[in-house]
Computed example of a mutant assay.
Amino acid sequence: MEELANCSRCKGLFVKGSSAVCTACLKQEEQDFQTVYTFLRKKQNRTATVEQIEEGTGVSEWQVRQFLKQKRLHPAHFPNIRYGCEKCGSPIKENRLCPECKHSIQKGMEAQERKKSIESRKEEREREKGIRTYYSW
């Protein structure tokens, strides 16, 4: 069954398919991509930053960053294009997090795992104590 949803860009009502935006916004997004890609294909613009792309094309910085996150634009081909880490906002070329944030999250997960391990060992010892207890009357 088809589902109604609000477009994440224009907030209009549309029948949700494989996209989270309505067909009008999808067309506009594709036009924006073609504009950005045409701009970047010019030799003098290949080293442009996201801010310079916005200035030269009129496409919002947010949309250019979305193209990067969707891997429609590859930073390997355009060396000065960067977008913000989703946690701290520092400029990165790939993935969703910078190495520092990724490391801090991994450390947090390891600490959580150690805590769970300690708690499970403690519970195991408590159960063993209960088994060994003998009562005599």
Rank of each mutant, 00 (worst) to 15 (best):
E3I: 10
L4N: 04
L4P: 04
A5I: 10
C7R: 06
C10R: 03
K11L: 14
K11H: 12
F14C: 03
V15L: 14
V15T: 12
K16M: 06
K16H: 08
G17H: 08
S19W: 07
A20Y: 13
A24D: 15
L26K: 13
E29C: 01
D32Y: 05
V36D: 14
F39C: 09
F39E: 07
L40T: 05
K42C: 01
K43R: 14
K43D: 08
N45D: 01
R46Q: 15
V50P: 12
V50F: 03
V50C: 03
E54F: 01
E55C: 02
T57W: 09
G58Q: 09
S60P: 09
S60R: 09
S60C: 11
E61G: 04
E61Y: 14
E61D: 14
Q66R: 12
Q70P: 01
R72T: 06
R72E: 14
L73C: 06
L73D: 02
F78D: 02
P79R: 03
C85P: 11
E86R: 10
E86K: 11
G89F: 03
I92P: 04
N95S: 14
N95L: 08
R96F: 12
C98R: 06
H103N: 12
H103W: 01
I105H: 03
Q106F: 04
M109I: 15
A111M: 11
Q112R: 13
E113A: 14
K115E: 10
S117H: 15
R121I: 05
R121S: 05
E123Q: 14
R125H: 08
E126H: 05
E126Y: 03
K129N: 15
K129I: 14
T133R: 15
S136N: 01
